[in-house]
Amino acid sequence: MEKFEPERIYNLYFDTVYKVCFLYMKNHADTQDMAQETFCQLLSKPFQYETDEKTKAWLIVSASNLCKNHLKKWWVKKSVSYEDSIAEHADKNGLVAESGSGSEVYRTVMSLDEKYALPTYLYYYEGYKTAEIAKILHTKPSTIQTRLAKARELLKMELE
């Protein structure tokens, strides 16, 4: 029978939480902070454990909400090195930076707006059905279907 053992839950779902946070924060440093905060919330706030799967859903939603709130707050927006400033300057002046097709796929995925990024991740990577995603995110299945369709359009994803 499953039990709520903090370290077991952490090991089981850390990767999921990390990926969800990265979809919002888009860099490892901030992602680590947000992943840490998600698990701190799990262990410090009142939490009624029922099953591992429900705990996973709770973690996904908490991580998402924490990231969304954090993105509105202080010192989050950007860290800029002057090398990046130079590259931006080069781009603005029509000088093309090096890119390969792999990095282009990565950029395309990372450029998805947050409202498409999470359903897309839950559908294509975690394998949830649209009804399940709708339940996790407290929205209608039709909303999830619309967002997945839009995400496919933005990603130019081939239909299965």
Binding site: P6, D15, Q32, V105, Y106, Y124, Y125, K156, M157
Partner: peptide
């Protein structure tokens, strides 16, 4: 983009084991 390409990108978002342990230490403390 194929689904496999999308999945590969997500697969890349994997923290190092050391980072995972460090975060757990901080969480539990």
């Amino acid at each position: 983009m194929r689904k496999e390409e999308y999945v590969n990108v997500i697969e890349q978002i994997t923290p190092e084991e050391e980072v995972k342990k460090e975060i757990w230490n901080r969480v539990s403390q």
